[in-house]
Computed example of a mutant assay.
Amino acid sequence: MRFGLSGTLGGLEAHGADAIVGHARRVERLGFESVWFNEEHFNQPNGSRVRPVLSPIVLAAAVAAATTTLRLGFSVLLVPLHHPLRLAEEIATLDVLSAGRVNFGVSRANGERYRIPFGYDEERDPGLRQCLDQILAYWSGSAIEVGGVSYTMSPITVQQPHPPIYVGAYSRQTLTWAAERGYPIIAHGIQAPASLHRSLATFAERGGDVGAVPVGRFCYVAESDRQAREDVWSVVCQLADRLRRIGLTRKGDLITTEEDLEPERFYRETAIVGGPDTVASRIAELRDRYGLGRINLLSSFFGYLPAQLLDSSLELFAGEVMPRFARQGLEV
């Protein structure tokens, strides 16, 4: 299996924005395959904890310059908030600078919190599918006509015909479209088990390759199950409360429920927390049930996990969990 980290700062939020590049080098040395950056914007001026937010493409470029094998994913970029030509150019540039290490995760822009400040006009929005088709056309060398003169986009992506595309999707319609186009979906760690099952089952029914889907899970490893609970129980309670307050539906597509966010249930069923044996067993259960080949750890628990605990968890995951899958003849 391949293991990555996912979050606003690539799953390393606990260390703060100024430390991400150095810690990206460290997770590369530990054997993680990828880091995935979320596109988020703004901090709410309500006196609550400040969560660092950086431009994901700029951050990915900084990490690319500091690493050699770590793949740079986006989980996800909100494509309708970007001009398709500009986004195509920036992702192609990142692919060149990273020597072909980009995973292009995309989704539509949900929620007025982003749409209104970015001048989003729903009546003029071509939608995710058309925007993505435009980007692919630019990457393929399709002509851009300006004043009777024909141009083609530069640079050309290193990965041909284009970087791998992943689609953030919850609705049956988008899951079906992604499967039919051959795009793996991205399953986010906020999804309760029932929502994750629905997404993966729908995607598979429509011909999608579930083995290529990065499945996100909040994950923490300690020396024992008892120590893990002692370390992160308060973190889980804070996170569950946060998820409850922001609401987790996408136009009626259920992601989780109030019952799923009850802290004890969230701890046992949605998050993967425990000693190495427990964590490896839970991941193996997901792999065997769905045929998974990729897991993305939401290792910072949205930044609630203290840095020292994050470091120890990643060390234990790399040293005690990943090798168990390698010994089974699976790629790590």
Rank of each mutant, 00 (worst) to 15 (best):
D225T: 06
Q160W: 04
E205D: 14
R268P: 10
P184W: 02
A64G: 03
I190G: 03
A307D: 14
C237V: 14
F302E: 11
F203P: 01
W233P: 01
S171T: 04
L30H: 04
E258D: 15
Q160P: 02
R217H: 10
Q160R: 14
I190L: 15
F118D: 04
A187R: 04
T270N: 15
S34N: 00
Y267A: 04
G148F: 15
S199M: 08
R49T: 09
L298C: 10
H82W: 13
V210P: 03
G208R: 08
W139T: 06
S154T: 07
R113G: 10
R287N: 02
R268C: 00
R294H: 15
I116N: 07
H41P: 02
Y166E: 03
L30P: 00
A178S: 15
L309T: 04
R2K: 14
R101M: 09
V102D: 04
R51V: 11
R294M: 08
E262Q: 13
P52Q: 06
D125M: 01
I165K: 01
R26Q: 14
E180K: 13
S75P: 12
G274R: 12
L200R: 02
D231P: 08
G208S: 04
L81N: 00
V279R: 06
L136S: 07
A64Y: 09
T249M: 02
L77C: 05
